[in-house]
């Protein structure tokens, strides 16, 4: 843990190299933000999740190790309150979509998808005060699971290899997620996540710094079809009063 000036505040060894991102979380009652980290065992087949105190790096809790499936290294995990204990919990994708208690590492919820590789994002898609789980960034189609992980609210019919991470824009009509895909490298998709429009996606092709209705139109204009990156959303980037999604492309355009 570093101070703003780059000097070390504390360091704490873990058993192996961390997998993915260190994510800040509230895991105890003090005012200092804590951290969650995941790593694999030396053969990288068992996934371990640990909560660390933000004050001194002391171990707060270890979750039960799990086998994350054939992909072994998860795409990432999310942190947010699953129950009403005032602490954050950890949402991660292993043999199933799982919630690990931020208080003690227990497993209060398990369900969702049994596909072993997704990034979970937390979205209150129905404005009921609790988060649903959007699973994206994986080999199989994007899907939205309910808060208790017992049902899939929606799964994309588009098996387009949605590996690039999506971003979620807060729009007046509800959340909309924006994503790219590997199967259709230059295709940008926007999908509403709430109401009657849930899952009714629209696509456009971004190539050569222009927008096209489909790949055929882009190729007809001799536009190179680059691979779009993961999306980033800015709620107000252009001064137009609505969110903007930003995607890079391997064709050299943003």
């Amino acid at each position: 843990m570093l101070r703003a000036d780059g000097s070390e505040r504390w360091s704490k060894p873990i058993e192996n190299d961390p997998l993915g991102d260190l994510v800040p979380a509230t895991l105890d009652a003090d005012a200092t933000t804590d951290l969650v980290v995941q790593w694999g065992d030396p053969r990288d087949v068992v996934l371990r999740t640990r909560g660390l105190s933000g004050i001194d790096g002391a171990k707060l809790q270890d979750a039960e190790p799990m086998t994350p499936g054939a992909r072994r290294q998860p795409a990432g995990f999310a942190v947010g309150p699953w129950n009403s204990d005032g602490l954050d919990d950890v949402y991660t994708q292993g043999p199933k979509t799982q919630v690990l208690s931020g208080a003690n590492g227990a497993l209060p919820a398990s369900g969702g998808s049994s596909v072993g590789y997704f990034m979970p994002s937390l979205i209150d898609s129905n404005s009921d005060g609790s988060d649903e789980v959007l699973l994206h960034g994986g080999f199989t189609p994007v899907r939205l699971c309910d808060h208790v992980l017992t049902s899939t609210l929606w799964m994309s019919p588009d098996d387009d290899r949605p590996f690039p991470y999506c971003a979620v824009a807060s729009c007046p009509q509800g959340p909309i997620f924006v994503e790219g895909a590997l199967k259709y490298p230059a295709r940008r998709k926007r999908t509403p996540l709430s109401g009657a429009s849930l899952g009714r996606f629209a696509t456009q092709v971004l190539a050569a710094g222009r927008s096209f209705v489909n790949e055929a139109s882009a190729l007809a204009a001799s536009a190179y079809l680059g691979q779009l990156t993961s999306a980033a959303v800015h709620q107000e980037l252009t001064g137009t009063g609505h969110p903007t999604a930003v995607l890079g492309s391997s064709d050299g355009f943003l």
Binding site: G20, A78, G80, A167, V168, A232, V233, E236, L237, G239
Partner: peptide, 20 residues
């Protein structure tokens, strides 16, 4: 501040600009 912006992994930043 971190990959995918926040712990909820929204990928969405809240700042404002008038970039054209």
């Amino acid at each position: 501040p971190m990959a995918r912006q926040d712990g909820r992994r929204s990928g969405a930043a809240q700042g404002t600009s008038d970039l054209k």
